[in-house]
Structure formats: C-alpha cells, structure tokens
Nucleic acid binder design. Structure first.
Length: 519
DNA sequence: TTCCGACAGTGGGGTCGCAAT
DNA sequence: ATTGCGACCCCACTATCGGAA
C-alpha cells in the first residue's frame, strides 16, 4: 500500500488558495478527502485544515534555515510526513536543535518545491489557503454525504474534526449522531460574539436575557468522574496539574460526575479580580505549583453546566442549565449573573459590574443550547471602550493580503514632564483597505528613516485609538503597554501637541497593586 | 436585490519552559 | 546567569462569500 502522495495535498492546497469561491474550495477539499485511504483520512483532514497532528514539534524558523534544494520529483507520502514530525516531536527536549534541524533537512530534501511550501505553511501556521477547520468540515460533509451540522456537532463533542471525519466515512450519519458527551473527553467550547454596547448585545440575544459578569482570566472546562478531575483550556490542553486548588474545590461538590464550563481568576482581599497577567502567570507554569498556590490562590467561577450525574445537558436551554448550576454550587463559585428584561436594566447592570472591576458582560439567550463556535450569536460579550489620541511614530510593512501597505503602527504618548514621545505598543486593527492605502501614502510622505521592515516618520500623525486597558510591560520604556489597541480614525485636526500624556493613559488603570505576596 | 451570518486573515502583548550561549 | 526560541494564554477588527430575507 503506497499511501497518498503528499504532493496531492500540496496541489489541492494550491488550488484552494487560488479560488475565492467557498463552494469551489469545498469541492476541492471534498475531492481530496474522498481519495484518502481509510488509514490516512485523519491525516489528510489535519493537513487540509492547515495544521499538524503534533501540537508541538519544537521546530520553528531557527530549525529551518539552510534547507536543501527541493526534490525534482515527488516521492513523499502523507504518512511519511507525519512520521517525520512525530520523530522530531518525540525528541523535542532530549534532543538538540541540531537534531531537529537535521531531521527537517532530510524531510525538506525529499519534498518538491510545492510540497516544501505546504510544509512551511503547516509548521508556521500560515497556509493561507482561505480554508481552515470550518471549511474542511463542509468538505467532509460533501465528501461523505452527511449534513454539515452533524459533522460540526461530532467534531465539537470529540474535540476533533479528523475523528468526526473518520466516523462520517465509516458509519455515515448514524455514526455521527451516536456521538455523546463523554466525561474526560473535552469538548470545543461555546464562544461569544461581541457587540459595541449593551443595547446592541440585547438586539442579538433578544429579551429577556441572562447577563453574566465577564471575568478576565483563563477559560477552563472541568470534567469530574468520581474521584478524578481534569481541567482543560479553551484549546483543550490539560492543565489539571497546574490548578490543584480548583481540583480540590470540584472534588468538594456533592456530585459523582459532571462537566462544567467556567473562568479561573484570582481575587484581591477586597474581592476585586486580580489583573490578567497575574492569573496567566499561575496557569502557565507547572513548576513549583504549591508555592504559586500559596502566593496566588485561584478560584473557579462556573457559568455553565454540560453534564450532571449521568445526565446530558447540552441540549437543555441555558436557563435550565443555569438553574441546576445554582443548585449545585455555592453562590461564590458561580459567575455573578442577573436576568434582565430591558435595555435600561442591562445598561445599569453593565455600569455596575464595570465599577466592580469586571471586564464587562456576556449577554446570553436563555433558550439557547450549548453549541461550539459563534453560530447564531446566542452569547454576546460587551466591554467598556477607552480612547486616546496617540502619535504614530513608525509603521511596519504588512504581509499576505496587506503586502505593499504600511500596516502595523507604532503608537506613542507624550511624557507629561519631558515632552518626549513614549512608545506604548503597536496596532494593525481597525484599518479598512481604503485607510491602509491612504495611510501608506501619508506615512511615506513623512518618512525620515527606514530600518528593516519599518518606516519611521516625522512629524508624527495623530490617531484616535481604542483599547481595553493597560498592562505592565518590560518591552516598552513607559513600563506599560496598551491592551488590544485598535485604530478608530486619524485626527488630521490634531498635532503632536494634542497627543495624550503617559499620565493620562496610566490614569485609566493605575496598576498600583503590587504582585500578590509582596506586601 | 439587499442584507447579514459565518469565515478567514492579520496580526498584538505577556508568560513560561527549555536549550544554547 | 542570561538570552532566544517555541508554544500558548488572552484578544479586535475587516473583507468576503453565499444563503436568507
């Protein structure tokens, strides 16, 4: 059994990239899926989604310098490519970078030019063919003659589109519909769309609505099976070992098995949430967890219940799941929430939670079942928006569809004492194509200096910037950086004399609290 | 015919673990 | 001991296609 040529996938990817029609992309994907051998289907699904099966390979750009020239003729199979990545992933750690480079050189040396391009795309997560997991699910549905919704649901419950594809091929619709939520098998989380303000959110969810306080922490999915608890992140990574205090809290619940969805945060003595950075530090490390737990204890705030003591709740309406959650958990282990019946009421709740230090609200349709993805916007998040006028001191050339345009702007405030410009971060968000073109012309006309990839300008134009807040930074001279900055508009009526000061930006969030445990 | 939901793309800052220096 | 790389946590926004209205 020779196996599917990798070249065939490379050619499919090239063709998918070449058309903008989604229907045409879907047809190309379906054709390739239909040609895959049974034991290679999951790999084909993975590669056509633009990803590798191995979550971490340890291979980055440093390991891909000095690659051999492309092979003249294709010989690689899909399975051989997977084996090569499995080998380097296997000795990421014990092996040396040199060993990984060597293995990659061997793989690339056997790949044609077209294949090398796909390999690079898979490694760097930039295949850019205009099709990712969602479109591949469409392709799976077409290839095996099943409804897309069934593929989506099975992929959600299995946490895997390749696994859903295998079921679709082997057992059709019946096999897909037989998939059930299993304790210990993380499911893809339901996501929220976003809205500019509370009333806009309410227009999408309808009235009445459930308004949950939005906590700025780490999303965690909890699975308990008797005495065993597992915790998973949004991308379904297992972080159980990093949060023993959360495990203990779940074990203390009067239940045999459950699956619930929530946010992990830490609280200050006054009950207000800790900054995101502090929480991220705790959840990102598995070294000396006990010390971290003592210094910064974290807590789970649940907001949804997917299963309780053998009973599947995914298809129950939110209000029923929420009621069961309230019965099961102490009030201080559930996200603060209110039921609201009007836009005025919601606006008041929004002001209230923001004043209490929460990130905002997630407004929810009480009738909606639990379903992965953003479909139908049953959940809508709203956050307060802060704005500043800042100086654009430089801009970086864009990539991909922004090739040839100055895209990523360097933003600076004015120091209130010295008058010097202090860089606070960058942004490329909020720009229309028209604005990209316009700003490229404007900035080039002000060019004073150029370094690799960056054009420096003077005098700096002024932009109105929105952001979610500020955070500590070791990267920027002011010691702070903007969080989620985006361009609202250029202010041609303003000059650098009108730019906001560092003190003004800092006033948004004084960051006066020290690291927990230090005082 | 127009509208709008879903999707992909373009990247941002911070933090950690680990290997190389 | 420090630095650089890779991975992954949080995330906003625009353009586009194609089905819905």
């Amino acid at each position: 059994m020779p196996g599917m040529p990798f070249e065939e996938l490379a050619r499919t990817s090239e063709q998918v990239a070449a058309t903008r029609s989604r229907l045409a992309k879907r047809a190309l994907l379906a054709a390739a899926l239909g040609r895959a051998a049974p034991d290679e289907l999951e790999l084909v699904v993975t590669y056509l989604s633009g990803t590798l099966r191995q979550r971490r390979t340890g291979v980055g750009w440093a390991a891909l310098t000095d690659l051999p020239a492309p092979a003249g003729a294709p010989t690689l199979t899909v399975t051989e490519v997977d084996r090569a990545f499995e080998a380097v992933a296997g000795h990421a750690g014990s092996g040396s970078a040199a060993r990984r480079s060597q293995a990659m050189a061997e793989l690339f040396g056997r790949a044609t030019d077209l294949e090398q391009r796909l390999l690079r795309g898979l490694i760097f997560d930039e295949v850019r063919q205009g099709a990712l997991d969602a479109l591949v699910q469409d392709g799976v549905a077409e290839a095996f003659g099943v409804p897309v919704a069934a593929v989506q649901r099975a992929a959600m419950l299995l946490g895997s589109t390749p696994a859903a594809a295998r079921l679709a091929r082997e057992g059709g619709l019946a096999a897909l519909e037989a998939v059930r939520l299993r304790v210990g098998q993380p499911v893809r989380p339901m996501l929220a769309a976003s809205a500019a303000d509370p009333s806009a959110a309410l227009l999408r969810t309808g009235v009445p609505a459930v308004a949950d306080a939005k906590l700025d922490g780490i999303r965690v999915q909890v699975h308990r099976d008797g005495g065993t608890v597992r915790l998973y992140t949004r991308t379904l990574d297992d972080i159980t070992d990093r949060l023993p205090e959360v495990v203990d809290a779940v074990l203390a619940l009067p239940t045999r098995d459950l699956v619930l969805d929530g946010e992990v945060v830490g609280l200050r003595p006054d009950g207000r949430p800790l900054p995101f950075q502090v929480i991220a530090s705790r959840t990102a490390t598995s070294v000396d967890v006990a010390a971290g737990r003592d210094r910064t204890p974290l807590r789970l705030f649940a907001f949804d219940l997917l299963r309780l003591d053998g009973r599947d709740l995914l298809d129950e309406p939110l209000e029923a799941r929420v009621a069961l959650l309230a019965d099961l958990l102490p009030a201080d282990e559930v996200v603060p929430r209110r039921s609201v019946g009007s836009a005025d009421e919601l606006a008041a709740v929004f002001a209230d939670v923001v004043a209490q230090g929460y990130e905002g609200l997630v407004v929810k349709n009480p009738q909606a079942p639990y379903a992965a993805g953003r479909r139908d916007a049953a959940w809508v998040k709203v956050k307060p928006r802060h704005t500043f006028d800042l100086a654009v001191t430089a801009a970086e050339w864009g990539h991909g569809r922004r090739e040839g345009w100055l895209s990523n702007l360097h933003l600076a405030a004015v120091h209130q004492d010295t008058g010097a410009l202090v860089m606070l971060g960058k942004t490329f968000k909020g720009l229309t194509d028209q604005l990209l073109q316009w700003q490229t012309e404007q900035l080039l006309a002000r060019e004073v200096r150029r370094t690799r990839g960056t054009v420096h300008v003077d005098p700096p134009p002024v932009v109105e910037i929105a952001c979610d807040g500020v955070q500590r930074s070791t990267r920027y001279p002011g010691g702070i950086a903007l969080r989620f900055a985006r361009v609202l508009r250029y202010r041609d009526d303003k000059t650098v004399a009108d730019v906001d000061t560092l003190a003004t930006v800092l006033a948004l969030n004084p960051l006066e609290e020290d690291a927990p445990g230090s005082g």
